[in-house]
Amino acid sequence: MPNKSDYEPQQPESNGTVDSNTVQKVTEFLETFFCLLCENALPPIGKDYLFSELVHPVFRTVDYRIKVWVTVKYIDEATIATQFSQYYSH
């Protein structure tokens, strides 16, 4: 009989390698980016999503680059349902 796995993936956490000024600038950029993404890129799927917020963004410096793990909260204007999408910068 199949059982549910007890595997729990490790959640990434900020490790203090990105200073607060940079975190603020990257956060502002991401908020602008996801607002524009809703306006310009999502209409082909036939949904009217509004960017709501970034949820628990994680910032790390890896190989001299800033890496970000973030969940983005959208609101579906038609149903008022909440949609969450996860993103990771490479």
Rank of each mutant, 00 (worst) to 15 (best):
M1K: 09
P2A: 12
P2Y: 14
P2L: 12
N3M: 10
S14G: 11
N15R: 00
N15W: 00
G16D: 03
G16F: 01
G16Y: 00
T17E: 01
T17C: 09
S20F: 08
S20I: 06
T22M: 10
V23M: 11
Q24K: 11
Q24E: 14
Q24P: 03
E31Q: 11
E31G: 03
T32F: 11
F33A: 05
F34H: 06
L37M: 08
E39Q: 13
E39V: 05
N40R: 15
A41Q: 12
P43N: 04
P43S: 08
G46H: 06
G46P: 04
G46D: 04
G46L: 01
G46M: 01
K47C: 12
D48E: 14
L50V: 05
L50G: 02
F51W: 07
F51A: 00
H56K: 15
P57M: 10
P57D: 13
F59V: 00
T61W: 07
V62P: 02
D63E: 15
D63Q: 15
R65E: 06
I66Q: 06
V70D: 00
V70A: 04
T71H: 08
V72E: 04
Y74L: 10
I75W: 00
I75K: 15
D76T: 09
D76K: 11
D76E: 15
E77Y: 07
A78P: 05
T79A: 01
Q83H: 14
F84C: 07
Q86W: 05
Y88W: 10
Y88S: 12
